[in-house]
């Protein structure tokens, strides 16, 4: 760590943080004031703050239904990622024939954008009969390659002798994952939870394609529908945005310490 001018470093960090936080603040401010966002000069502090926009959003559209759908889909996605990625990650730490090929395939699959796989994903979902269901909404999000690799890196950091000891102690491979590796991989679990939650919570294209009726739609679709309902409702729109963002921010804040450790583990030695 370099010494000298700590106040200068802090000033720069405060400035950068302000730049990052300003849009969030602006959204929140608009949501509670109904201000015209194009007003000039812009007003920094809120004038006559109120919560009517949030009430409007809750009652004007079936917000609770969208919220429930989003919660169910995200819960499924989080559970799927935490469990399935751990199994895949563990498999990748073991030796098996053509392991390098499998790793290469997984890595190359990361290069394919989701949009390119939507048609096959839709056809498979139709075959499985899960169109317009919560499971169908969550299915393509149940496992993500990058999160598999996060588990893999985390499991590889666990000393091999611990796994040997567990094997001698009589644990099956499943038990080794559940009782030895996962408790020692909390940062990787947190990373999986956050990323799976954010990706499923924000997912728009897939729910748009797979849902047929409004009862199954999630919050991002609700937001789009809300946009088409009303004109000149910047305040209500921003209130909606705040309500959509809030759970994600909460999940992130709860797990952020472990999350950051998870993203950087394996990046440096020791």
């Amino acid at each position: 760590m370099r010494r000298g001018f700590p106040w200068a470093r802090h000033a720069v960090l405060v400035l950068v943080s302000a730049v990052m936080l300003l849009p969030f603040y602006w959204v929140l401010k608009t949501a509670i004031t109904d201000e015209n966002i194009y007003a000039y000069p812009p007003r920094l502090t809120p004038l006559d703050p109120h919560l009517f926009n949030f009430v409007d959003v809750w009652y004007l559209i079936p917000f609770p239904r969208y919220l429930l759908n989003s919660v169910i889909v995200s819960a499924l996605a989080v559970a799927g990622n935490v469990v399935l990625n751990a199994l895949a990650g563990y498999a990748l730490t073991r030796h098996f024939p053509a392991k390098r090929l499998v790793l290469l395939l997984l890595l190359s699959c990361m290069l394919i954008p989701f949009q390119a796989t939507i048609i096959p994903a839709y056809l498979i979902s139709a075959r499985l009969g899960v169109l317009n269901t919560h499971l169908g909404l969550a299915l393509p999000l149940l496992s993500t390659i990058v999160c598999i690799f996060i588990y893999k890196a985390s499991f590889e950091a666990v000393p091999k002798s611990l796994i040997d000891a567990a094997r001698i102690d009589g644990l099956s491979e499943w038990r080794i994952i559940a009782t030895v590796l996962l408790p020692l991989s909390k940062p990787a679990i947190a990373t999986n939870v956050i990323l799976a939650f954010i990706w499923s919570w924000n997912s728009f294209m897939w729910p748009l394609i797979i849902t047929r009726d409004a009862e199954m739609q999630t919050l991002p679709l609700g937001l789009a529908r809300f946009l088409s309902y009303l004109e000149d409702t910047t305040g209500a729109l921003y209130a909606f945005v705040v309500m959509v963002l809030l759970p994600g921010i909460l999940v992130f804040l709860m797990a952020q310490k472990e999350f950051i450790r998870g993203l950087t583990s394996g990046a440096t030695k020791g």
Partner: peptide
């Protein structure tokens, strides 16, 4: 059998 490892292999949690 029971084995004692070089790095102890104690479950840290």
């Amino acid at each position: 059998i029971a084995m004692v490892f070089q790095d102890y292999a104690l479950y840290p949690h």
